[in-house]
Design a protein around this nucleic acid. Structure first.
Lengths: 223, 223
DNA sequence: ACCTGAACACCGTTCAAGT
DNA sequence: ACCTGAACACCGTTCAAGT
């Protein structure tokens, strides 16, 4: 009877890669990148840390699987048959929102650009680039330009979240950075001092989309 | 006398932040990001690992200082008074070459976009954006678009170098990735399969500059 | 086949003790 | 003021032993 009560604390089903990945995502969402350790994961799954290695090769694969789980949702939801320009914007916003909701995804995307999740994004971007009528010889450069921009922002966003764990601190964080920028030597950093004013109030998503649009204009002009 | 011989093995001058950063760069260049530990650094400087902390706050500051040391050379060398479009290209190529010569710089730039080295790049890009005649309200978005693209590529480049430590393996690495891409499901990944052919033979620097040019065209068109 | 958890080989960082 | 190096509190990963 008392053993029955203890049972409640133990995992019900068998371990699987999917259950491990889901638990990893829960830890990452709750406490950030640094909280995901094999010990913490094993504790949450009520198992030994070695058991995880039966289902997942190493931490790299674990991170990649967690990222792919969320990015796959974005790329598969992408509107088929939509106007290519809008489709690219929608895909980009989808990735942005995934990073916004799970900042560690941004860190993982920029840290390992050769993982499958990034390939999904490149494929989505590329297909719409083709639909845009960009000649074949220019498609690779056009798609990777968009991809690099997305990965660059992903890294920036994740770094911000890493510095201030709570999402509510984002404004305060940007305010502190802006204050630092405003104190820089005017002779050496005129531009950064000027944009410091816009930093705390700016909308990340708007700025992201503005960048996507700039690149799209470039692609369409060159085409 | 025998003690005199032992003296040869010991450091000659006093420790300083500059000497520590130089030693760190040597380790990073020789054996990559993972080789830089406080123990390895202390051994190279013939001191205790704790001594380093007297001059450097932590590993984060050490990495940032090493990166800034190399990026400062690029941004200060930037041609003053040149045509803004060419100046931006020159600055971007300078950053690319620094990453190409020291792939760990790419990793560090993308990992911590709030470090001073990144601010240097943003300042350089921004000043040329101003010179380009972009209206003030559009300057911030234009400069960060270029910056995000640069940081995105920095991360990609560093990840490639991390996977294959020897620079000579780069072609082989890209060939292996291309072979993987070619085996993907044609129905799901038509675009990636198509560009796989261009991957092993493509010139990283050309592709980088093509991306910069696309964004510049976008900026000039919107202006 | 799958799980357990101690053990191994590392880390970054601290700090009492030296000079 | 600056340096030493053992000690601390962690890691990811392995592996003999269990079921």
């Amino acid at each position: 009877m008392t053993t029955k009560i203890q049972r409640t604390q133990r995992r019900v089903g068998a371990l699987s890669k999917q259950r491990i990945v889901e638990a990893a995502i829960e830890i990452l969402d709750a406490d950030g990148e640094s909280a995901l350790t094999f010990r913490a994961l094993a504790a949450r799954l009520a198992t030994g840390s070695g058991a995880i290695y039966w289902h997942v090769a190493d931490k790299h694969e674990l991170f990649a699987a967690a990222t792919d789980h969320l990015i796959a949702r974005v790329t598969s939801k992408a509107a088929r048959g939509a106007e290519p320009r809008q489709a690219i914007r929608a895909l980009a916003v989808g990735v942005f929102d995934a990073i916004d909701a799970h900042p560690w995804v941004g860190g993982q995307l920029s840290r390992d650009p050769w993982q499958y999740a990034v390939l999904r994004i490149l494929e989505g971007v590329g297909e719409h680039i083709q639909a845009l009528g960009v000649p074949e010889h220019a498609q690779f450069n056009a798609a990777t330009a968009l991809l690099s921009f997305i990965l660059g922002l992903a890294g920036q966003y994740a770094a911000g979240a890493r510095l201030f764990a709570r999402a509510t601190d984002r404004t305060a964080f940007l305010g502190a950075v802006a204050a630092q920028w405003a104190q820089l030597d005017p002779a050496q950093h005129p531009f950064v001092r000027q944009v410091a004013k816009q930093l705390p109030g700016h909308d990340d998503r708007e700025q992201f989309l503005a960048g996507i649009d700039l690149i799209l204009v470039g692609i369409e002009t060159v085409r």
